[in-house]
């Protein structure tokens, strides 16, 4: 990066550290920012600094929040006997968008991944167990992703939670709404059949 002035090289280097951003994209973003008005770029840098300074993890559910405990954990209208376990705060937002869930959450801040060497001690599993010991739930919903890492996490948690919750459930897997049956692969279709339910 000898061709660039030092601040430009530094920004390209910083942007490259973001997920999914390679050297070319980092360079393009840097030159895009150089062309934008000063106030717009200042607003962006302030927003980045503020999010880091003001956002913390909720000490109960580990969701990202401005105040601790978060709005969901401190909402008395939420059903405290229903707990949904998700991988990341993004998954919590996706669940909230359904508008159908009125219980509380626990964010693991990751997922078990044998190939990446990410084990239970790297997630908020111990905190989940302590939480359930102190505040029992009637049902724990395991809402991890339906991939190998999410499945491993769900299987592992189901084993651990057997003695702590009377009901441990897993979100359904199968066909996406609007999808075509003929294009579904055998594993997805098998899961959809496995999770079928009675109508009427």
């Amino acid at each position: 990066m000898a061709y660039y002035p030092e601040p430009v090289a530094r920004l390209i280097d910083a942007l490259q550290k973001l997920p999914g951003i390679g050297p070319k994209t980092a360079q393009r973003l840097t030159f895009f920012l150089l062309k934008r008005p000063t106030e717009e770029v200042t607003a962006l840098s302030e927003a980045i600094a503020r999010v880091k300074a003001q956002i913390v993890n909720c000490s109960i559910c580990f969701n990202v929040t401005e105040e601790d405990p978060c709005q969901i954990c401190s909402d008395p209208a939420r059903d405290a006997r229903l707990l949904c376990v998700v991988e990341e705060p993004n998954d919590l937002l996706a669940m909230e968008r359904t508008g159908q869930y009125r219980g509380r959450y626990h964010v693991l801040l990751g997922v078990l991944s044998p190939l990446d060497g990410i084990g239970p001690e790297d997630l908020r599993v111990r905190e989940l167990l302590a939480r359930l010991e102190g505040q029992p739930a009637d049902e724990v919903i395991l809402a991890t992703n339906p991939n190998v890492e999410g499945e491993a996490t769900a299987i592992y948690l189901a084993k651990l939670l057997k003695s702590l919750a009377p009901r441990v459930t897993r979100i359904a897997r199968g066909l996406p709404v609007g999808g075509d049956l003929e294009y579904a692969d055998e594993v997805t279709l098998g899961k959809a059949l496995e999770g079928r339910r009675e109508m009427g």
Partner: peptide, 14 residues
């Protein structure tokens, strides 16, 4: 191997 680290942790926890 990373999977060895994972296995050690999972076994300890279970």
């Amino acid at each position: 191997p990373r999977t060895t680290r994972f296995r050690t942790q999972a076994r300890r926890a279970l």
